[in-house]
Nucleic acid binder design. Sequence first.
DNA 1: CAGGGCGTAGAACTTTCGTTCTATTGAACG
DNA 2: CGTTCAATAGAACGAAAGTTCTACGCCCTG
Lengths: 210, 210
Amino acid sequence: MSISLAIVEDLPEVREGLTQFIALNPEFIILDTFETAEQALGELPSLNPDIVIMDISLPGMSGIECIRRVRKKIPKVQFMMFTVYENDEKVFDALKAGATGYMLKSTGLMQLVEGLKELYNGGSPMSANIARKLVNLFKTEHGDVEPDAALTNRENEVLQLLAKGLLYKEIADQLKISVGTVRQHIHKIYEKLHVQNRTEAINKSIRKVP
Amino acid sequence: MSISLAIVEDLPEVREGLTQFIALNPEFIILDTFETAEQALGELPSLNPDIVIMDISLPGMSGIECIRRVRKKIPKVQFMMFTVYENDEKVFDALKAGATGYMLKSTGLMQLVEGLKELYNGGSPMSANIARKLVNLFKTEHGDVEPDAALTNRENEVLQLLAKGLLYKEIADQLKISVGTVRQHIHKIYEKLHVQNRTEAINKSIRKVP
DNA sequence: CAGGGCGTAGAACTTTCGTTCTATTGAACG
DNA sequence: CGTTCAATAGAACGAAAGTTCTACGCCCTG
């Protein structure tokens, strides 16, 4: 059972290099290659490959936008980013859009081929540098909180209500305490979370837990 | 310049297998090996290796707890998990504790050695299955916010920034428009969403909390 | 080409938020 | 038994947020 591929890559040398190298490997079948996201967008839904190897910087529509749109039509296709971009924004945007593999062009074709197999088997192969970005983000969002940053029970109650968008007065009424106390609790919460306002506090605490 | 290692692993066969295989590779020096987390905890701070290869299931203290404690003393040491555990909780706990590499014992020694090099060079090598867990978590937490159809493009842009907790002034700066306009957009947003303030708007559009 | 939606902008105003300071009570701890 | 901390509370004040009104240029559509 072979793995069917499509390639979206504007540079002819890279595209052909990829095609030829992958063709050496009998597990893969390359169904088609595209130079632009627009072309790919038209053809991919009917091609329905197992995996699309996707560049990011393309003339016209970006590879990321292309993923977003193609996935609406054929959600089970896997996307392997294969690009030079290594900055956080591009990486995270690609993953948000639905890419599940992310290999840098600098890591070489051998690893790419290994990665394609892993991707097909449900893994998320990625260059170690890319994985590090994810790990770092994960740690900033879920990292062990400093001891003094732990909120008290009461503070957590207040935070829950705060997160609903209630006014201080409404929170006070609901908890049967005064507005002054509410203010006090909230002030402490902001202090412990190192934030300046309600929205930041919510983003830092509530939204973290899936 | 060689990479110095320590190994924490209770099973003698695995420990010795690792030692011997890695010894074949001249880039590495194994400073010491430990059978328990407690032993490691005592010795690692003075050994100060570049990388610690860490098992999770150990008699007594777990490898994860060990990482947590060792990192307090020598924060720059890198930890490579090398374990059979593949369930989400263990993986995420290890990463929270400070592990930066996570390879499954099933992936083989060759890849482990490759991973050690990548870890030393600032990457986060991990088995593709482990990376997939991270990617999935990332997507559930940062999943694309499909812009609310009722809002105009501009209004959606403003809402995104509003949701980050930015001040009106900051939103204005970022979008290169005046604060008056920002106020105007936000007012329209609240009107369309039938809400009274920032937090309610975010709950209704982005977080979809009822 | 008139009308409507959109994006822009500012003025004037009220409400809410957030900070700072001070103070009291009760529980926990060594 | 003093100390520390969570929870309570209020006063006073400045900083943002949010409302209301007005206005203009642009583009699209009937």
